[in-house]
Simulated scan of single mutants.
Amino acid sequence: MPDPQTDTATQKSQGLEEAFDLFIEASKALEAQQAVLQGQLNELSSQLIAANSRLSSLLNSLPAGVILAEHDQLIDFNPAAAHFIPELTKGMPWKIPGTWKSSNSPGDHLRRQDDKQQTTQIYEVKAGITGAAGEHSRQLADKQQILQILEVKTGARSVIQIQDISSAIANRAEEERMSRLTAMGKMSAGIAHQLRTPLSTALLYASHLADQNITDDQKQLFADRLRKQLISLEKLASNMLLFLKQRPQQTTPVAVHELLEEACQAAQGLSQERNIELKLSLECPHTLVNVEKHSIISAFVAILENAIQVSEPGQLVEISCHDQPNQTEIIIEDYGPGIAENMMDTIFEPFSSGRVTGNGLGLSIARSNIESHRGQILVSNRPNGGARFTISLPSLTEL
């Protein structure tokens, strides 16, 4: 009889051998898979190295500067970034240098190089949003560099891009200048018409003054009328020069409420004469805008005077402002007849006026002044009657 213990041992031995064989086969399969994975890993590593090399070459050849920061500490940057900001070093904290001066838009800054250098350059740096360098004159285009900085944050990591947009801004300024000159060419007939009437009237009053037969009272009357016509001519000439004026030269941070209050004071004489109440409502008492003060105030006054002129005695002209992301919105509304549909598309064009006594330059100048500060002006009719002018200007951080 077979020994049961021997059979059991034999079965166990065979089971171990089979398990060992399976282990060997599994190990070989794993080794094969590991070899395939290692090959794929090596291939991916090679591709990653090649991609990093291409990316590095691309970043190093870019005219735009690229900075990588983590927890606000500089990790790396390309040569263009070092060219724009020579003081950059790895490990330093990323911040806008304190020597740079604020410009006329949120995050904008100016930096002037040492006057001892051969070429004095003005650097305008814009963080967060894009836009034109409105306050620089075309004559300084060859002495300035305009840099645009855009920062994108992903958690603790930031990617900062610096781009030189000087040529684009200079081209845009030149296009705007040529557009104004073209507009003046188209306005020639309108200018002649605008000048002819007050000039003819002034000549008539001047001829009366030369008449020896009129009384002193009549001479005084004609002298006053002549003075008014000459003032009208002088105002027209000034308005045409304002229309052709270049971008604002000197901007300063000004509170929005201060601009609106001064504009209302300037228009108060006309509003009282016509019995129109100016109602000012401020929802942005601490908002600042970087502007050429008198230029923006004159734009507001032109819109206010237009609203007052079309209003009936006893009506209101309402002025309000509201904070929006990176900008402030000013709304001027009247309760007059509104804007005719055939004038809606031309209301800001020179000599486009629905009033007999208007010369049609006020709103053109207002738009020019606002847009030169990288702002925007829109017009619409209110649902219940009257016109609404909406002005948007880039705003600075609130106090």
Rank of each mutant, 00 (worst) to 15 (best):
W94F: 15
R227H: 11
E371K: 06
M92L: 04
K293Y: 10
A189Q: 15
T251Q: 09
H208D: 04
L62G: 06
Q246D: 15
S364G: 01
N239G: 13
P97K: 14
V379H: 05
R180T: 03
R177G: 00
G338P: 08
T99L: 14
T10A: 13
L241R: 12
S271L: 00
F243P: 04
P383D: 05
A210F: 06
A141S: 13
K143E: 08
T201K: 12
E135G: 06
Q327Y: 08
D345H: 15
L59T: 12
Q38M: 10
H257V: 03
D108K: 02
I331A: 05
S295F: 05
P325A: 04
F348L: 05
F20P: 01
S238Y: 11
G358A: 09
L396C: 02
H294S: 11
T251L: 06
H286C: 02
D72W: 02
A266K: 13
I296W: 00
Q327V: 01
F243G: 05
Q218R: 11
G385T: 08
I330Y: 09
E17A: 12
G15F: 10
L204N: 10
M343T: 06
Q121R: 10
F77Y: 15
F389T: 03
M344I: 12
A127Y: 10
Q11F: 14
N381P: 11
P106D: 04
S188Q: 12
E124H: 09
L30C: 01
A299M: 06
N359W: 02
A64C: 08
P313A: 02
P248R: 01
L396R: 04
I67R: 07
T357P: 00
